[in-house]
């Protein structure tokens, strides 16, 4: 993978970056105790997928038969990510009101 660094930018570079972002986002979602941190992880994951879509849908990297589908999908995903973040933030706020903290580990009343 490291000889990618010395080559001109192709589709593979984009894919590697998005894979890296995806992994980072996933790890962020799992390991963070802060609720906002988890949301950051979600945003990272969604954005990595966006990057994938745009890269695959770009006419400059490969003969694409899908028209502007990739970029269109990316637009929609941005909107959805934003709304999801808004909703998740509202829920976090509600959580804060009840538990006085946004540490997700504190919410362990529901178990079994």
């Amino acid at each position: 993978m490291f000889d990618l660094l010395s080559q001109p930018v192709t589709l593979t570079h984009y894919l590697c970056i998005s894979a890296f972002l995806f992994t980072v986002g996933l790890l962020c979602m799992i390991t963070k105790r802060n609720a906002i941190g988890v949301l950051i992880g979600i945003e990272l994951v969604l954005n990595s997928a966006n990057l994938n879509f745009i890269a695959f849908g770009s006419p400059y990297f490969q003969q694409s038969t899908s028209g502007i589908d990739g970029q269109l999908i990316a637009l929609f995903v941005i909107v959805l990510a934003a709304s999801e973040a808004a909703v998740a933030l509202a829920i976090t706020f509600h959580f804060y009101q009840k538990y006085q903290t946004i540490d997700v580990d504190q919410g362990q009343d529901l178990k079994g």
């Binding site: 609720a35 829920i91 509600h94 959580f95 919410g107 529901l110």
Partner: peptide, 9 residues
């Protein structure tokens, strides 16, 4: 709130 946070995340 806990349930909805878990669900959302």
């Amino acid at each position: 709130s806990e349930g909805s946070l878990k669900y959302a995340v």
